[in-house]
């Protein structure tokens, strides 16, 4: 029974991850309001779609406060 359960789980994991990876479910879809975007290299989208038009997000200008990274931060 347990082995059948394990077999079912692995097949499900493989089906989901292969589909998501090959059809790029985490990519930004142009001109689509509902996004499943998953940022790469910490690159957040700086806008959203409103009626198919890209609108800058209100937080876009908060970069002014960026203070870099590294071990010196927080000291």
């Amino acid at each position: 029974m347990l082995t059948k359960l394990f077999a079912t789980i692995v097949v499900a994991i493989a089906a989901i991850t292969l589909t998501a990876g090959f059809t790029q479910q985490a990519a930004l879809v142009l001109r689509q309001e509902n996004q499943n975007h998953w940022a790469r290299h910490g690159t957040q989208t700086s806008g959203t779609y409103r009626s198919g038009v890209w609108v800058d997000s209100p937080t876009r200008n908060s970069y002014e406060n960026f203070r870099g990274g590294g071990p010196g931060v927080g000291k």
């Binding site: 930004l28 142009l30 001109r31 940022a39 290299h41 910490g42 690159t43 957040q44 989208t45 700086s46 806008g47 890209w54 800058d56 876009r60 970069y63 960026f66 870099g68 990274g69 590294g70 071990p71 010196g72």
Partner: peptide, 25 residues
């Protein structure tokens, strides 16, 4: 540096953008 990757359409309008805050120390 704070920089943006922009994707523009044929008319030059931004249709997607991603913001990165990069640093080297």
């Amino acid at each position: 540096v704070t920089y943006e990757i922009q994707v523009k359409d044929q008319q030059g309008k931004v249709i997607a953008s991603g913001l990165k805050q990069a640093w080297a120390e």
